[in-house]
Simulated scan of single mutants.
Amino acid sequence: MLTYRPISAADWPRILDIQRENYSPSFIESLEALKSRWVASPTTCLVAEGPSGILGYALSHPWAQGHAPALDRPLDEGICPELLYIHDLAVAKSARGSGAASILVRALASCAAEAGMTRMALTSVQGSDPFWERHGFAPTPLENSLAGYGADAVYMTATIPRP
């Protein structure tokens, strides 16, 4: 059975392993940058677990619509509660197809709704936009550049379904 829970301090070595197996070197972020998202919003940074342990993780935080935070920089620009920004969601290669990613997306939507938010946003990289479209996200214009996110980066938003 798959479950999710907030990230704990002991989870970071596994999170870094999953990050390394999923991203090209230009997308690998420092522990400091990743942890800054967790410190800013610990209730919206989650891991998915199965019987064998952590299968994936999601780092998200409140943010401003139309802006993508810089990669590999600690989050120190201040938090704006307009929407929940999914900074990173990755699943171990061995857990692909397990449903862990979808569980994390649904859990983040619940977290956002509980906080009174009505929208989520993210920047899709490495051709992941079809996955996000299946979860209700659509390409959306943004106010700042996606420089550093790669040539195929797409800023996407979704409306959080009301219960």
Rank of each mutant, 00 (worst) to 15 (best):
M1P: 04
L2D: 02
L2R: 02
R5Y: 01
S8W: 03
S8C: 11
S8P: 01
D11E: 12
W12P: 14
P13R: 03
P13M: 01
R14P: 07
R14N: 11
I15L: 15
Q19K: 12
N22S: 15
Y23Q: 03
Y23D: 03
S24N: 08
S24Y: 05
F27R: 05
I28M: 06
E29Y: 06
S30K: 11
L31G: 15
L31M: 12
E32A: 15
A33V: 00
R37V: 14
T44H: 15
A48L: 10
P51T: 10
G53K: 13
I54M: 13
I54Q: 06
G56H: 09
A58W: 02
L59N: 08
S60E: 07
H61Y: 05
H61N: 07
A64H: 07
A70L: 10
L71K: 05
R73K: 08
P74F: 02
L75I: 04
D76V: 11
E77M: 07
I79V: 15
P81L: 07
P81M: 06
L83G: 06
L83C: 10
Y85G: 00
I86K: 01
I86P: 00
I86G: 00
I86S: 01
H87V: 02
D88L: 03
K93H: 08
A95H: 08
A95M: 11
G99I: 13
A100D: 02
A101G: 15
S102T: 15
S102Q: 14
I103E: 12
V105W: 00
A107I: 15
A107N: 13
A113H: 05
M117C: 05
R119L: 11
R119P: 10
R119V: 05
T123S: 13
T123G: 03
V125L: 10
Q126P: 01
Q126C: 02
S128K: 04
S128T: 04
D129P: 01
F131G: 05
E133G: 04
E133T: 09
R134C: 02
G136M: 01
A138W: 05
T140D: 06
P141T: 05
N144A: 02
N144Y: 01
A147D: 03
A147L: 03
Y149T: 04
A151M: 03
D152P: 11
A153M: 13
A153R: 05
A153W: 06
T157H: 03
I160E: 06
P163S: 07
P163W: 09
